[in-house]
């Protein structure tokens, strides 16, 4: 049963990831991307990582997708260089890298015993994560707030610059 769920979810995930690359309209890309995000959230649910799935839904499916749609509406599309057919040269360069990555991943899956290394998750995801965040990982947690501060200052600088001309 677990395997069946996993196969269905991951097929949807791969299909929507491919869809996001292959369709032309930017809004359709976002819809496919949303499908990808939802299927990843579903696979987290299947693995009983509730908090991660919830965060995936709240942050990606809501905040980031909405943000992207807002950005898409502000872009002057008539000025943007559109897709001009198949990039042959890039494909030739990308193919060996792609084949190498796939081959290496398959080798890893076959030759390693990662499933033996799996740890049982704590029953109460949220409180376990909260406790760790405020005790052991207090230093990186505090530092992460600086990232937001820096990004906010940067956004204000460039926003102001545009407003002033």
């Amino acid at each position: 049963m677990e395997l069946l769920v996993f196969v269905v979810i991951s097929t949807i995930a791969i299909a929507s990831a491919l869809g996001a690359i292959l369709v032309k309209s930017p809004i359709h890309v976002m819809v496919w991307f949303l499908g990808f995000i939802l299927s990843v959230a579903a696979s987290f649910f299947a693995l009983k990582a509730d908090l991660l799935a919830g965060l995936q839904l709240v942050i990606y499916a809501v905040a980031i997708v909405v943000f992207y749609v807002l950005v898409i509406t502000t872009i002057p599309w008539e000025k943007v260089k559109m897709f001009e057919g198949f990039y042959k040269k890039e494909f030739v360069f990308a193919l060996p890298a792609f084949l190498f990555t796939v081959g290496a991943s398959i080798y890893l899956v076959i030759n390693s015993r990662l499933s033996n290394l799996r740890q049982p998750l704590p029953k109460d995801n949220v409180s376990a994560l909260g406790t760790v965040l405020f005790t052991k990982y207090i230093a990186p947690f505090e530092l992460a707030s600086f990232i937001l501060l820096i990004a906010m200052i940067g956004a204000i600088i460039f926003g102001k610059e545009k407003a002033n001309g």
Binding site: A139, P140, L143, A144, F146, I147, I150, A151, I153, G154, I157
Partner: peptide
């Protein structure tokens, strides 16, 4: 910590 600091330095550099 390495990841968070890496992001901090990089984002400042982009700006």
């Amino acid at each position: 910590v390495i990841y968070v600091s890496l992001e901090m330095v990089s984002i400042s550099f982009y700006i």
